[in-house]
Design a protein around this nucleic acid. Sequence first.
RNA 1: GCGCUCGUAGUUCAGUGGAUAGAACGUCAGCUUGCGGAGCUGAAGGUCAGAGGUUCAAUUCCUCUCGAGCGCGCCA
Length: 531
Amino acid sequence: MKKEIADKLKNAVTDLQKKGVWPVFDVPEIKIDCPKEEKLGDYSANIAMVLAKKIKKTPLETANQIISSFQFPIHSSFKKIEAVNPGYINFYLSEKYLRGVIAEINERKEKFGDFETGKGKKINNEFISANPTGPLTVGNGRGGFCGDVIGRVCRKAGFEVVNEFYVNDAGGQIEKLGHSVLKNEKAAYSGEYIDELNEKYSAFGGAREVGEAATKDVLENIIKKTVAEKMRISYDVWMSEKEIHEKYVEKSIQLLKYKKLTYEADGALWLKTTKFGDDKDRVLIKCDGQKAYFAGDCGYMLNKIERKFDRMIMILGADHHGYVTRLKALSEALGFAGRFDIIITQMVRVTKDGKDVRMSKRAGNAVYISELIDKVGHDAARFFFLMYSPDAHMNFNLNLAEEKSEKNPVYYVQYAHARICSILRKARNENRESKTADYGLLAHPKELVLMKELNKFPDLAEEITENCEVHKLPHFAMRLADKFHSFYDACRVIDEKNPELSGARQGLANAVKIVLAETLRLIGVSAPEKM
RNA sequence: GCGCUCGUAGUUCAGUGGAUAGAACGUCAGCUUGCGGAGCUGAAGGUCAGAGGUUCAAUUCCUCUCGAGCGCGCCA
């Protein structure tokens, strides 16, 4: 809808230019807002205020000129388009259009809001990729839920999405884990899981052997289980760093050498990442001849490029924000032509008994995501993390987590869904289920507000594939549930005295149910029929 | 020291170059002879950290200051 309006405005402006009424200039990007106040329209554009100076007219005059150059009949979707001080162009949706939306939702069901921007395109979606040296923390949880939802939304947009976890099963941390399991003086990690690993593997030999066995165990029995069973995330690919080292690292280095993007200095081989905006060049091969960790990234990047993705998304914790420029530099150096988005999720700060918990796997005092999920339940935990923008440094009090979870807005949303199911169930049982629905009967203010909210869903889904702002889904779900509860309070759905209206309202309620369920599905939370 | 991110109601957080800055929780006051009260309606609560600047318009963009978190290895 927003796109339609923007196109319409753009056409109007270029039309005025063609006719010579306005001078020729590049039309800036047109932004469409949804005003908070109903009387200010359903959509609003500030383009006239932006252009006023260029064409030497007041913003209001500009706005009126744009409106008058719209092709008539205006557009069946709107009942009114007007220019208002100081220069806004406000669009008012027609009831007819809104009723059409309800019909469309009931017809397309969960496919409402699907679109085809991603058709035939592949996305690589890498997230969590935590070291297999211990359980996942609440920080990994945040990135995990975020990545999972981005994947779901992109799939809705028609993209083929490959969810991927990069397993760091090579390198020094394996031996570190080995020492820790053996509990010798080089031990780095601690915690209950180390005790368990110690019982299982301490007889396996040296740090190397013990470390490898323990790593495999952590990956299979802790990480994969947490991800699948607790977090309910499914991955398509678990990419082994070891395998990347065997098959792609050398090849990627040769390619970079061939492109003359490397040089030797101080006995090491360097990649000129500064050529692509990095603040210093990075070592690929250390002076002892060993490959640096970054060489693994090179191989992995080449591997992704060879798999021909149109877009790569990577979700990193804020403690890795320093890698953003170097990874982007790497993608350019290796010639990735698609779009590459790196999303940083800020740290999760945990307080316990009034004190900050400094989370560290090494100290063994990290708060594990599986524990949190066991405590508050999957849906509440997931919704809680997803409510907040990745940019927010979120704080949460562990003592309040359980208590708070009862107040978790997820229940408010799920309750709305269960309530609708109950109403529709009752209608069915009492044989009052409507066969046909005349949505023309929907005219109550609460009904209109509800329909307008439903109409926003496709725009929202499409925007999220662009900007990855998944926290907008929970917010939308809460708003929709809110509008429904309010409608429910004001309007009786099952009404034997007025079967026609009742039929229309059942259709409306069913539309809300569909969109609510679909939103919850994208968030990854259940939509219960009963609670 | 340098860099990235953040600072909005009592608390946790949305929001935006524009029209009266929002929600949840907490607080207070109402709503039940009807479809699920896990609900609804309303109220109180703000110097958008502070100071400059750009703009017709800044909480939003720029600079500086203060405060918080995180990074700055030929570690992985």
